[in-house]
Simulated scan of single mutants.
Amino acid sequence: MRIFAVLLLLLVLIGGIGFYRGWFSMSSDQDDPESRKSNVNLTVDRDKMDADADAVKVKVQELTDEAKDAVTTR
């Protein structure tokens, strides 16, 4: 049961971050107002996800280099 709760929490966390960062978006439309049916679309922006991943890699590399410089200057 705990594993299920952890997985659900991770899913919600990733979904929340994804919507906040613009990785995911939702849209809906109603073709015929009288039919009471709506189409809901989920769009995944893989380019945005890749750009954010690359930015994180660059930042981690910069922080790693700074940490190495701080250790060697001691």
Rank of each mutant, 00 (worst) to 15 (best):
N39M: 06
R74D: 08
V6N: 12
L11Y: 11
G16Q: 05
E34F: 14
L10V: 09
T64H: 08
T73Q: 10
L9M: 10
N41K: 14
N41I: 11
S27H: 07
A70N: 12
D45W: 01
L11G: 12
V56F: 09
L8V: 05
E66R: 14
G22N: 05
L10T: 08
E62P: 02
I3P: 01
V58M: 03
N41A: 14
M1N: 09
L13V: 09
A5H: 02
V58K: 08
N41C: 04
D47I: 09
L7W: 07
K37V: 15
L63P: 02
V12Y: 01
L8A: 10
V58T: 14
N39T: 14
A5W: 00
L7P: 00
T64V: 11
V6I: 15
D32E: 15
L7A: 06
S25R: 04
L63G: 04
F24Y: 14
L11H: 10
G22Q: 03
M26C: 11
L13E: 02
D50V: 11
F4Y: 08
A51M: 03
K48F: 02
A5T: 00
I17T: 03
G22A: 04
K57D: 11
S25V: 00
I14P: 00
V71G: 00
D31Y: 02
M1H: 07
E34K: 15
L42R: 09
D47A: 13
V40W: 15
I3L: 11
D52Q: 04
L42F: 15
D52S: 07
G22E: 06
S25E: 05
F24R: 01
A53M: 06
F4W: 04
N41Q: 12
I14A: 13
M49Y: 02
N39F: 04
K57T: 07
D54N: 11
A55S: 09
E66C: 05
S38Y: 06
I17Q: 00
G15Q: 01
D32Q: 13
A51F: 01
D65Y: 04
F19W: 02
A5F: 01
D69Q: 13
G16S: 08
L11F: 12
T43Q: 06
R2I: 07
V71N: 05
K48H: 06
